[in-house]
């Protein structure tokens, strides 16, 4: 049997292999975007602006971590934006009406998120309906519940200091920057997700399921259980992100997180994770999350009119995806 694979022994070809990987390409584009905005508007790099970006980044970034794992396994979740709202709304309703203390309220909020993820996962795997349809329906149900139980009004958030507020939304000064504890959550969860995807047995299963589910099942991999678990993880991370956000801005709104599902999926695929499953990258997702955040922020700073702003965001995402498609094609041709 002839072998057509060329060994990567020449340094030049290894270099090209590195530049050809989607993560590195994303990283290069991110650098260009950051440098571009800094040159156009030095205020982009001001401590205040960076602090501002860093406050938002973890909230979408945490959801993106779960979405990366789920997409790698070949499914996605459109209900994350709604779960982002419902999680904290439930917590605030319970805590403010004095039904339970804040700790119990948070636990119940997270349990609801677990239930949402479990229902998504069970319907997708056991009944076999595509995750697009299941989670789209779930988006409406969850958003509807959030609106109904609040009667459409935002709830004033928990404003009494305590261990949970400190854990989720405390802020601190680091040099000239003002940072939130959510950044630590984001860093820790990123490390965990990267470990799981790249280095653990479970990560091997996740990639295999997304790449060829039947092959994975034939090797005894419990594909359905893994997918259900990932749906739960994604919902819980969305709820957690929602709670962090609610504590930070001291309000839990039933319409919070509207459109986040698409923004998060954009972050993940811009980073190089395949929408069709099998190939996922946590590093890429971080790059994607920072890039989308920086673009949203930078475009306003350079003075693009508010209403034109989405044109640019969409165009930049499209350019990234075209770039990935070219990289993908070239690596197959080799």
């Amino acid at each position: 049997m002839t072998v057509l694979i060329q060994p990567f022994d020449k340094p030049a070809s290894r270099w090209r292999g590195l530049a050809g990987s989607p993560q590195i390409a994303s990283l290069v584009i991110l650098a260009i975007v950051l440098v571009g905005f800094s040159l156009a508007r030095p205020a982009f790099l001001s401590p205040l602006n960076i602090s501002n970006m860093m406050a938002f980044l973890p909230e979408l970034g945490i959801i993106a971590l779960g979405m990366t794992l789920l997409l790698t396994a070949g499914e996605f979740d459109l209900s994350v934006g709604a779960t982002f709202a419902l999680g904290p709304v439930i917590v605030m309703l319970l805590a403010q009406n004095g039904v339970v203390d804040i700790g119990t309220a948070l636990a119940i909020g997270l349990l609801v998120c677990i239930a949402i993820g479990a229902i998504n996962g069970l319907i997708v795997t056991k009944i076999g309906i595509s995750s697009f349809l299941v989670t789209l329906s779930m988006l409406m149900i969850v958003r509807g519940v959030a609106l109904y139980i609040t009667q459409g009004f935002p709830l004033k958030s928990w404003d009494q200091p305590g261990v949970f507020v400190t854990l989720l939304a405390d802020s601190f000064e680091l040099g000239p920057w003002r940072l939130y504890t959510s950044l630590w959550w984001f860093i820790a969860l990123t490390a965990l997700a990267a470990y799981i995807l790249n280095f653990s047995k479970l990560g091997n299963w996740i990639s295999a399921i997304g790449s060829n589910r039947n092959a994975a099942v034939a090797r005894g991999v419990p594909a359905d259980a893994v997918k259900i678990g990932l749906f739960i993880v994604t919902s819980v991370l969305a709820g957690l992100a929602g709670m962090i956000s609610a504590f930070r801005i001291s309000a839990a709104s039933p319409v919070a997180g509207t459109g986040y599902e698409l923004e998060v999926i954009a972050m993940v695929v811009v980073g190089g994770t395949a929408l069709t499953g099998g190939r996922g990258t946590i590093l890429g997702t971080i790059v994607g999350a920072v890039m989308l955040r920086a673009i949203r922020n930078g475009i306003v700073l350079v003075g693009v009119p508010g209403l034109a702003f989405n044109i640019f965001v969409g165009a930049i995402i499209l350019v990234m995806l075209i770039l990935h498609a070219f990289i993908q094609k070239r690596s197959f041709r080799r």
Binding site: N212, A215, A218, G278, R279
Partner: peptide, 11 residues
């Protein structure tokens, strides 16, 4: 070894 479905191509 199942027909065409034995391996995960992305691994």
């Amino acid at each position: 070894i199942h027909q065409d479905t034995s391996l995960a191509p992305d691994l």
